[in-house]
Design a binder for these strands. Structure first.
Length: 304
DNA sequence: CACATTTTTGA
DNA sequence: CAAAAATGT
């Protein structure tokens, strides 16, 4: 309903260009580079190859997406190909606005790319919906929007499981590839985020807030609205969220969206070697336990 | 933006 | 009787 009502309204306004000067204001500005904001630790070595912080980088990223990604956007769920925009860190830091994105897309759209363009804009719309939720719930990262989830029987996090998830050593290929992408370059493909989140919450039985906190600490696009809203979406505790019983099967997701293993092989060095670990949990057993926990929350008697 | 199971379809 | 569609969690 949120996006529908946005679309029913007027198009967003055009952005105004920055003024060269403001009458009566004398302002000098440091060069951003002189602040040496970029991390110099080894863990950030690969970051400069991934994105260029700042307004120019944001503009270039958008152009690149409009030139190459938009026509492929119907394949956005395949993490092995570059079909998503990669704009999230730029949007996060206000280096480009959703309104600018909207008008840029509308200015290049053709009948052939109309469907992809609308879908892409609706994804930007999810971000707006997240801010709508945050505006009305400043404790979005803490409180289940659907209060019945306060009764959910989360288990005490198993430290070995949680650590394996953070390090990408769960033995579940798509989850590990995503978590290692996150650690290496501070981002993760959206489809894989959903799978990795579903695995933590449902297969490992760990409270979504613990996953949210890890993403908040590691994502370069960590966003105070999108991050918690999306975790609540996967957990089923959010507004208009995925129902809790929608449990991703990481193996089926990998077969469907990474059929040639390109993504998994890219991020898991020891992929397809004996060094790669066995799964730390059984996907089917833990899925059954998750559904049983859900029934408990709903006050239902256990099956049989 | 799921998956498993049941029911229906149709060659 | 396999595949597609509907259904329940």
């Amino acid at each position: 309903p949120f996006w529908k009502s946005i679309l029913a309204g007027p198009a967003p306004r055009q952005s105004v260009t920055a003024p060269r000067s403001i009458a009566g204001v004398e302002a000098t500005s440091d060069l951003l580079d002189s602040w040496n904001l970029f991390p110099d630790r080894p863990w950030a070595n690969d970051f400069p190859n991934q994105w260029t912080p700042g307004e120019t980088g944001a503009r270039e990223r958008l152009e690149r997406f409009l030139d190459n990604g938009l026509a492929l956007y119907h394949r956005r769920d395949e993490p092995g190909i570059e079909s998503t925009s990669g704009l999230s860190p730029h949007l996060r830091f206000g280096e480009i606005s959703p309104y600018q994105v909207w008008h840029a897309v509308e200015s290049v759209v053709t009948p052939e790319t109309r469907a992809n363009a609308s879908r892409f804009l609706s994804e930007v719309g999810w971000r707006e919906f997240s801010y709508h939720q945050l505006f009305h719930n400043t404790d979005l990262h803490r409180r289940n929007l659907r209060a019945e989830f306060d009764e959910f029987p989360w288990e005490e996090p198993n430290p070995a499981h949680l650590s394996a998830w953070k390090k990408g050593k769960t033995g579940v290929e798509l989850v590990d590839a995503g978590m290692r992408e996150l650690w290496k370059i501070g981002t993760m493909h959206n489809r894989v985020r959903m799978v990795a989140a579903s695995f933590l919450i449902k297969n490992l039985g760990i409270d979504w807030r613990i996953g949210e906190a890890w993403f908040w600490n590691t994502l370069v696009d960590a966003d105070e609205a999108s991050n918690p809203a999306s975790w609540q979406w996967v957990a089923g505790s959010g507004y208009d969220a995925a129902p809790y019983f929608r449990v991703f099967n990481p193996e089926l997701q990998a077969a469907k969206f990474d059929p040639d293993s390109v993504y998994r092989a890219r991020w898991i060095e020891e992929y397809n070697t004996p060094l790669y670990p066995e799964p730390i949990v059984s996907l089917s057993d833990t899925r059954a336990r998750a559904l049983a926990d859900y029934a408990t929350m709903r006050g239902e008697r256990p099956q049989q």
